[in-house]
């Protein structure tokens, strides 16, 4: 027997139950009418990806449903997010924040490109990744060259850079957090904090 997931089993048994009871009552016309009126289930042909809710430390399991097969060159788009019924933490449930996760993905105020607020300006404007990274690298290097402290008064090597701080993100993977830490600390930056505290 092939193993069947709880969700697959429920979906299959509900469809089977509906079909048999309609036939038993001789509702073949009704069946056609129902079939015509029912919207196709919007999660058919979607790719399920397991993940963790991005918000609080309860860390509920979620399933992200995407339409569009990238292996066929189609554009994939997230159409739905719901609780993972197999996950021991939440057993499929989500609070009002997790239940609305799709809308944080689709948020109109989501940043989709780097933005810059130029000196004297009161607004942010788009900038290309290349120019943004060049600007940042230039500013960091100039400041580090000018203010890096190699040795303290006692002549002990300290290699610290106190004039620049770095604010990292909290909603990232362990790998991103690790790489961020290594990059920032290797420059000698001490003022290194996390947006989770903001």
């Amino acid at each position: 027997m092939t193993p069947i997931s709880r969700r697959g089993f429920l979906a299959g048994s509900a469809a089977a139950a509906a079909a048999t009871s309609l036939e038993a009552f001789g509702f073949s016309e009704a069946e056609a009418a129902v079939a015509a009126a029912v919207k196709p289930f919007h999660l058919t042909n979607t790719t399920e990806t397991r993940n963790t809710c991005t918000y609080c430390s309860v860390a509920c399991g979620i399933i992200v449903y995407a339409k569009g097969d990238r292996r066929k060159g189609e554009k994939a788009d997230i159409v739905h997010i719901e609780g993972d019924a197999d996950h021991p933490t939440n057993r499929g449930t989500l609070c009002p924040k997790g239940a609305a996760l799709r809308d944080i993905v689709k948020s109109e105020t989501r940043l989709t490109q780097p933005m810059v607020r130029r000196p004297g300006s009161d607004r942010f404007e788009p900038i290309s990744w290349d120019s943004a990274l060049d600007k940042i690298a230039r500013a960091l290097k100039d400041d580090r060259d000018a203010n890096f402290i190699e040795k303290n008064e006692a002549g002990i090597t300290v290699n610290r850079w106190l004039t620049t701080g770095f604010l990292a993100a909290s909603a990232t993977t362990n790998e991103t957090a690790y790489a961020t830490y290594k990059v920032v600390r290797s420059t000698g930056i001490l003022a290194f904090d996390n947006q989770a505290r903001v």
């Binding site: 918000y55 609080c56 609070c95 009002p96 924040k97 239940a99 609305a100 809308d103 944080i104 689709k106 948020s107 109109e108 105020t109 989501r110």
Partner: peptide
């Protein structure tokens, strides 16, 4: 509030309706 997460979900339509 249960319906919001810090200052993030003010960018979320559903949570902002709630």
């Amino acid at each position: 509030l249960t319906e919001h997460f810090h200052y993030w979900t003010k960018n979320n339509h559903v949570n902002s309706v709630l």
